[in-house]
Simulated scan of single mutants.
Amino acid sequence: MTATTDQLSTADRARPLAAPAPSFAHLIRMSDDTGLFEHARHAIVRREHGYCTDDVARGLVVTSRQPEPTEEVLRLAERYLAFLTHAQDARGAFHNRLGHDRRWTDEPGLGDWWGRALWGLGTAAARSPATWIREEALVAFGRAATRRSPAPRAMAFAGLGAVEVLRRHPAHSAAAALLADAATTVGTPGPDPEWRWPEQQLTYANAAVAEVVIAASQLRHGGPDLGDGLRMLAWLRDVQLLDGRLSVVPAAGWRRGAARLRHDQQPIEVAAFADACATAATVTGDPGWETGVQQAVGWFLGDNEVGTRMWDPETGGGYDGLTAHGPNLNQGAESTLALISTLQHARSWW
Results as ranks from 00 to 15, higher is better:
residue 113 W to K: 06
residue 47 R to D: 10
residue 13 R to Y: 13
residue 164 E to T: 11
residue 11 A to L: 10
residue 35 G to R: 06
residue 196 R to Y: 09
residue 269 E to R: 04
residue 206 N to Y: 03
residue 86 H to A: 15
residue 68 E to I: 07
residue 259 A to T: 15
residue 146 T to P: 13
residue 237 R to F: 13
residue 71 E to W: 03
residue 254 W to H: 11
residue 284 T to S: 09
residue 33 D to Y: 02
residue 254 W to R: 02
residue 199 E to I: 00
residue 54 D to A: 06
residue 276 A to E: 04
residue 205 A to V: 12
residue 340 I to W: 04
residue 30 M to C: 04
residue 121 L to Q: 07
residue 119 W to V: 03
residue 60 L to S: 09
residue 257 G to M: 01
residue 30 M to V: 04
residue 340 I to V: 15
residue 336 T to S: 02
residue 8 L to R: 12
residue 170 P to K: 01
residue 177 A to H: 05
residue 159 G to H: 14
residue 130 A to W: 12
residue 222 G to F: 04
residue 236 L to K: 11
residue 309 R to K: 07
residue 86 H to G: 13
residue 30 M to F: 13
residue 126 A to V: 14
residue 173 S to T: 15
residue 81 L to R: 00
residue 127 R to W: 12
residue 76 L to T: 03
residue 338 A to L: 06
residue 152 P to K: 09
residue 97 R to Y: 12
residue 6 D to A: 08
residue 71 E to Q: 06
residue 261 L to Q: 15
residue 192 D to K: 08
residue 96 N to Y: 01
residue 252 A to T: 15
residue 237 R to C: 05
residue 202 L to R: 13
residue 53 T to M: 09
residue 313 P to N: 03
residue 345 H to A: 06
residue 80 Y to V: 00
residue 149 S to C: 10
residue 101 D to Q: 00
residue 138 L to R: 13
